[in-house]
């Protein structure tokens, strides 16, 4: 029996909340708050401490791979911290207190205000990227586990009852990080052999009579019209090649 998700507790707007000014986050904000796995400290305090570790790691390494849903939660907090820092700067005591609490290593507080804030000062987009990461890497030496109870059977992760690693993973990174991009940039390289050949063919085609018109038709998508005087163009070609 699948229970429906309960409606999250509705926050009531009071004067105190109106007096707080926050910048809009540019990431999707979920209204169902995900519970995290229990750590040393229980309850909402423990949850925040776990998220604190993730946020500190993100600021330290600028790209981290962890379980998907905790990473999703941590993303919100990282974005909020950066937006508060960008908004208020290090002079505001509240922001400094927040940064001091959230970043366990104190050099990261300096990094936040001196490196990240100038980097993100004029960003119109979100400050982080969040991707789904592979559940496992074979290069890590991951192998399907053998269960002692059933020595003849090879238990693999498709059998949910035996609960081997199957939690979705996420990849969280700060934008503008020094590492190579996760997805290769889709920039066309004019010096690649295909593009060199294509560009020279294009010039050649253009140079012929009526070629520029046909080329513009083809490029605009109107299609290349059938030219009946093909032999004539061939003649021209032979002439030009001479």
């Amino acid at each position: 029996m699948r229970l429906n998700k309960p409606t999250p507790l509705r926050p009531l707007i009071h004067y105190a909340e109106l007096s707080k000014l926050v910048s809009r986050l540019k990431i999707p904000v979920h209204w169902h708050v995900k519970k995290l796995r229990r750590g040393d400290v229980p309850g909402p305090e423990g949850r925040l401490l776990k998220l604190r570790a993730s946020v500190t790691a993100l600021f330290k390494y600028e790209r981290i791979e962890m379980d998907y849903y905790p990473a999703d939660e941590a993303r919100g907090y990282a974005e909020r911290l950066i937006s508060e820092a960008v908004r208020n700067g290090p002079q505001c005591p509240e922001t400094m207190e927040m940064a001091d609490w959230w970043l366990e290593e104190k050099q990261l507080v300096h990094k936040l205000f001196k490196v990240l804030v100038p980097r993100y000062q004029n960003y119109p987009t979100s400050y982080t990227n969040f991707y789904r990461a592979p559940f496992w890497y074979f290069s890590d030496g991951f192998q399907p586990q053998l269960n002692e109870e059933y020595p003849d059977k090879e238990i693999n992760e498709t059998i949910p009852a035996f609960r081997t690693v199957s939690y979705p993973k996420g990849l969280l990174e700060l934008k503008g990080n020094p590492y190579p991009p996760i997805f290769p940039s889709k920039v066309t390289n004019p010096r690649s052999i295909q593009n060199v050949l294509l560009s020279s063919a294009k010039d050649f085609y253009k140079s012929k009579e009526g070629g520029s018109e046909r080329l513009s038709n083809a490029e605009s998508g109107r299609g290349i019209e059938f030219v009946p005087n093909e032999p004539k163009s061939d003649e021209n070609l032979i002439e030009s090649s001479k």
């Binding site: 707007i13 809009r24 708050v33 925040l48 907090y77 909020r80 959230w102």
Partner: peptide
């Protein structure tokens, strides 16, 4: 007492209207 609540950035975000919207 919940001394951690003031550090819960997302909770305060969910309880406030962003400045742009205001």
């Amino acid at each position: 007492r919940k001394p951690w609540e003031k550090y819960d950035l997302m909770k305060t975000y969910r309880a406030t209207l962003p400045e742009e919207e205001m």
